[in-house]
Design a protein around this nucleic acid. Sequence first.
DNA 1: GCCAACGTTGGC
DNA 2: GCCAACGTTGGC
Length: 162
Amino acid sequence: MTSQHTQTSRYWLMKSEPGECSIDDALAFENSTVPWVGVRNYQARNFMRDAMQVGDGVLFYHSSCAEPGIVGIARVASTPYPDPTQFDPASHYHDPTSRPDQPRWLLVDVQVIRKTRNLSLPELRAHPALEDLTILKKGNRLSITPVEAVHWQLISKLLSIK
DNA sequence: GCCAACGTTGGC
DNA sequence: GCCAACGTTGGC
């Protein structure tokens, strides 16, 4: 019998600051597909590196803004590859300690499937069934978190998506 | 702007 | 390896 120590999520929530890249900004990219630059947290990087698969569902979340919430449905659109901004001295995300022959930071492409209404934090919190959604837990700061299938299904329902 | 929570750094 | 200090996140 094979040992499966971790059950890999097929659904994710990814935070973006609308001042950096809003859902509308993402939709303006070719094929509504954006390179998810700027992740500088090892746990979030490892999700992209080790667990994400092309086609996985993504909840596009606006953070650090007036109305934080889920604003769109997207999908993982590439395998992981080095985040070019880590080597760009002009970038806010520049990491002078990362070497091109051993890139520290990775990204995946994310394709927006559709913009939705803003499913706000208070509305999410109003559903007891979403109590364990990582984004709703106290002190959560991770910019990429796995989403359980049951949570994905309920959120899809709340957004009137089949 | 405040501040709780968390991650990272670095001296020891 | 411990842990205090510091930096960042992100809701409010």
